[in-house]
Amino acid sequence: KLCLVCSDEASGCHYGVLTCGSCKVFFKRAVEGQHNYLCAGRNDCIIDKIRRKNCPACRYRKCLQAGMNLEARKTK
């Protein structure tokens, strides 16, 4: 099974979405830290295992598009 954000090996369902541990922690920190990420490109950066750290804005956008939600952990 692959992470729906970066296509690395998924470690489980986190915040409602099948993700790897790295994307799970990234999403939690992004939401709780209330980061205002900005993409230096055109908001279409490739997010994969190798390049997932290059653009936090696009990675966060991809987390949201996949359906990640901090509240999902509280309902399970």
Results as ranks from 00 to 15, higher is better:
K1Q: 04
L2D: 09
L2S: 11
L2H: 12
L2Q: 14
L2M: 11
C3T: 01
L4R: 13
L4H: 05
L4Y: 10
V5N: 02
V5M: 02
V5G: 01
V5L: 02
C6E: 00
S7H: 14
S7E: 13
S7R: 09
S7V: 03
D8W: 03
D8A: 14
D8Q: 10
D8N: 05
E9G: 13
A10K: 03
S11E: 15
S11N: 13
S11F: 06
G12Q: 10
G12C: 04
C13D: 12
C13Y: 11
H14N: 07
Y15T: 09
Y15S: 06
Y15I: 04
G16W: 01
G16L: 02
V17S: 05
T19Q: 02
C20V: 00
C20M: 02
C20Y: 01
G21Q: 15
G21C: 08
K24R: 06
K24W: 10
V25E: 15
F27N: 01
F27A: 04
R29N: 12
A30H: 04
A30V: 14
A30T: 08
V31E: 09
V31Q: 11
E32I: 06
E32S: 09
E32H: 08
H35L: 10
N36L: 10
N36S: 14
N36K: 14
Y37T: 07
Y37A: 08
L38F: 13
L38Y: 10
C39D: 01
C39K: 01
G41F: 09
G41E: 09
G41K: 13
G41P: 00
N43P: 02
N43T: 05
D44M: 12
D44T: 11
C45K: 00
C45R: 01
C45V: 02
I46H: 09
I47E: 04
I47G: 04
D48A: 03
D48F: 03
K49D: 05
K49C: 14
I50A: 12
I50L: 14
I50W: 11
R51W: 07
R52F: 06
R52C: 15
R52M: 06
N54F: 08
C55Y: 02
C55K: 00
C55I: 01
P56T: 08
P56G: 07
P56F: 12
A57M: 02
C58M: 00
C58L: 01
R59W: 13
R59D: 02
R59E: 02
Y60W: 10
Y60T: 03
Y60A: 03
Y60P: 01
R61A: 15
R61C: 06
K62E: 04
K62Y: 05
C63L: 01
C63Q: 02
C63A: 04
L64N: 07
L64P: 02
Q65T: 07
Q65N: 08
G67S: 03
G67K: 03
M68L: 05
N69I: 07
N69V: 09
L70F: 07
L70C: 10
E71W: 06
E71C: 09
A72Y: 13
A72R: 09
A72L: 11
A72V: 09
R73L: 09
K74S: 09
K74V: 12
T75K: 13
T75Q: 06
K76L: 12
